[in-house]
Design a protein around this nucleic acid. Structure first.
Lengths: 277, 277
DNA sequence: ATCAGTATGGAATATTAATTCCATTTCGAA
DNA sequence: TTCGAAATGGAATTAATATTCCATACTGAT
């Protein structure tokens, strides 16, 4: 019954894929139905598996899977996989290129720029939601919740984040001290046993932040680091690393993801301390 | 120096991968460093790309990428990819599913909270993108671009925004002054003809911010107000109102939309001043 | 039970990607 | 400046993977 594949343009996105899956899957013979069912339930595996793997998991022959791909409107498995791979990495198209294009078209009006930042912000938030390590987050909250005083350090680009944390902790009556380095004074003698520290720093890393964080760590205080990449100077054993990769635009980033993470940390610590559920 | 790869067991998970990345990346030659940097920032692409694609994106030859994989302790690219593919299929389906998972971990867990903030942030950004008045934005940029000096005021909850603007302007060498009210001193005599002011305030409005903004306005300076509601104390003729309605969660908000608007303003003003197209 | 039309399994082939190898270039010490 | 070692680019090789093909097994109508 499904021998002849009607010449059809392949699905371009998940919705089209699902639609086609639905319409196609009525009256499919056994093996092809297995394919449909397996793929419907395991959409996320398509991007990272080979036909052979998927076929084995669906308990059919690779050739059956191939036929199914064609019935779905793709030229073959590769084309289908291409769709899912592109969707998967949609969280990171090349922003600088897009922006360059936008500017070349003379569309550098403030509103166009805003659209870019909004977009970048949304992507950053999505990445944060998918990439955050819940275990590390729990760990960070636990170590901060029992601290006598929470020291905050973040300079230059990261200063707003530290400042916001300071505001949030004050609101929740959690003792916190913002090290803003005014007057080049680094109140590091304020770090006392029983305290903890949150350090926020992004490439290019600010030395003062690193120094204070390492000093606290050396003194045996719990340290939580909010940073960007995997390779950063605060990646040392014992420091809880919370990684945020903000999609940025040139030298600037909107800090959406970073602030969301920070506020989460603050509220979690605050409610745990105050016994609020 | 990196010719001989010490026989080493390959990283088994992201943590180990990151650790190894860190230790390895000191004193790497040019091309290999490019690999390290690219991969560090694009970890999520590894699962769904070919060596050739990654190499091209990192602007190196495939063989360089292969060498890097070996330095990382893998037998080759395939083994490294295997690690990321296995993590992918277990850890993250799609974003919305992931959010649901985060929430499922218990209502008061940090991860659940993070999901809420991420969601709130996204909604705020969407609203901002659709609700912003392009004309007012243009007007704000125009009046700021010609100012001699830009004064910034935002206290308490809004302070991080003012601080970030201050950072951004400094980066772009636009003269700006952050009125942070330390020591309860309000340098209002610093407001001079030819200057302009950006005031950021949200309900409950901080009196000092209002005062300074009104003083500037009375002195005939252009004033741009970043605020929430339509009815706010700065809604007076002559003050350019930029409205942001941040969706908040509990008592706190992540400021995603506000910061995006702020950074847009800063970059627009900066590039108009510096004549950058 | 027989036949025509499908469906299926599995091996054969074509394609694409990973990996290696080596000639050439670059870098740094003498 | 010269030499040797390390790094690099790119082509050649090898391995893996997708895709096709066809002989065989079903299925259901007569």
């Amino acid at each position: 019954m499904n021998g002849q594949v009607p010449p059809q343009s392949p699905p371009q996105n998940i919705e089209e894929f699902n639609d086609r899956l639905k319409t196609v899957s009525t009256g499919l013979p056994k093996r092809l139905r297995q394919c449909a069912e397996y793929l419907a339930e395991n959409v996320d595996r398509i991007a990272v598996s080979t036909v052979a793997e998927l076929a084995a998991a669906a308990d059919v022959q690779p050739s059956a899977m191939m036929r199914f791909c064609q019935i779905m409107g793709f030229s073959g498995f590769s084309e289908m996989q291409r769709l899912f791979r592109s969707i998967y990495s949609s969280a990171l198209p090349d922003y600088s290129v897009r922006l360059a294009n936008l500017r070349d078209r003379g569309a550098d009006s403030p509103s166009a720029l805003l659209a870019e930042f909004v977009d970048a912000g949304r992507m950053s938030l999505e990445r944060l939601a998918t990439a955050v390590d819940a275990r590390l987050l729990d760990q960070a909250v636990a170590s901060l919740a029992s601290a006598q005083m929470i020291h905050l350090v973040g300079l230059r680009r990261s200063f707003p984040v530290a400042a916001y944390l300071s505001y949030a902790f004050e609101k929740m009556q959690v003792p916190a001290m913002l090290h803003d380095m005014t007057g080049r004074m680094d109140y590091r003698q304020a770090l006392r046993p029983g305290d903890a520290l949150i350090a926020i720093t992004f490439a290019p890393y600010t030395q003062e932040t690193i120094d204070l964080a390492l000093a606290a760590h050396a003194a045996g205080l719990p340290v939580v680091a909010i940073t960007d990449m995997a390779m950063n100077p605060l990646r040392v054993p014992g420091i809880v690393p919370l990684q945020v990769s903000e999609v940025d635009f040139g030298e600037f980033r909107a800090l959406s993801a970073t602030l969301s993470l920070a506020i989460t940390l603050a509220v979690s610590v605050g409610s745990r301390r105050n016994g609020v559920k």
